[in-house]
Design a protein around this nucleic acid. Structure first.
Lengths: 164, 164
DNA sequence: TATTGTTATACTCTATAACTATA
DNA sequence: TATAGTTATAGAGTATAACAATA
């Protein structure tokens, strides 16, 4: 069972990389928490969506998502409009100011990463992102060998929702 | 600057993988927190060491490390002996019971990973661990292109300190 | 009756700052 | 005076459970 060594090593690195996340998480728009900032980036990447979808992407409890969305709404960076298809849900979407804040946020975090990962090639960055994506997909749903990794689009850096 | 898309994708995946970490983090010995469990695994992997070294490996503030160590000491799973070379420091090391708890913890977490990552090859696991290690090393110290990744040893799964 | 969100509450983790003891 | 660690405190994140509104 020395197989375990590989799993243990992965767990340690998964744990240790938390410090990188925390460092990046300190780069936030004024008045915005890291959790709310994450919601902002998800809306920019995937477009407007309901709390439930955000919750799934975040991999957290709906209560956390709800609070982050409220926070962003209070800042005026998102609006929550009733879903015509299901009045229980509201669709969360970025406001113009939300777009601005997100663009600045993305730039600042990207610059920080670029500064620190000077010796990383695109290939490495992509591969790590890909493996992480696959890890989460398989972990959440061990059944399928496939997972829905989608390479970042050419437009992703604009932080605009894809034809929301 | 569509370069940013790669960084943004990496950030998103780094953030999203937190849910995997939280899931694994719920597997802990009774009475032990995830933070304390992490200290346990570090002691198992690297052997007895001072709070300062643990702090560096954890990538957190010394105060957090101190509290986890206290917690473990209270459980009787580690001892803290004065460092003969510097009386300000104490060396944290696993007790026999700490070893037992760690072994069980490692087994349980590994089994969980094995169950969920059935379609992962050793090569994939190793590569992801490697990239994560490199990410943290380069992020913390962008100067050097080298980093101190050490492949898991054959004995790592025994969770014994290497000739502590 | 089941589902989507929201809110209140509790627990854990981390950072900051003040403090003790030793180098 | 500088450093290693500890403790108290505060801020942020998530999960649980109870609740409201709609399907």
């Amino acid at each position: 069972m020395s197989e375990n060594a590989l799993y243990e090593e992965l767990m340690r690195q998964l744990s240790a990389v938390g410090s990188v996340r925390r460092d990046l998480g300190r780069i936030v728009p004024f008045g915005c928490s890291d959790g709310a900032a994450t919601v902002l980036t998800l809306l920019g990447r995937h477009g407007a969506m309901r709390i439930g979808q955000l919750t799934e992407l975040l991999g957290v409890n709906p209560s956390a998502t709800s609070r982050h969305a409220s926070h962003l709404a209070m800042l005026g960076w998102v609006d929550r409009t009733l879903d015509p298809a299901d009045q229980r849900s509201r669709i969360v979407h970025l406001t113009p100011e939300g777009h601005e804040q997100l663009a600045e946020l993305s730039d600042r975090r990207s610059q920080e990463l670029a500064k620190r990962l000077t010796n990383w090639r695109d290939k490495d960055l992509h591969q790590l992102a890909h493996l992480l994506s696959r890890l989460r997909a398989d972990f959440d749903d061990p059944g399928t060998g496939q997972h829905a990794y989608k390479a970042p689009s050419e437009d992703a850096h604009r932080a605009r929702p894809p034809a929301a």
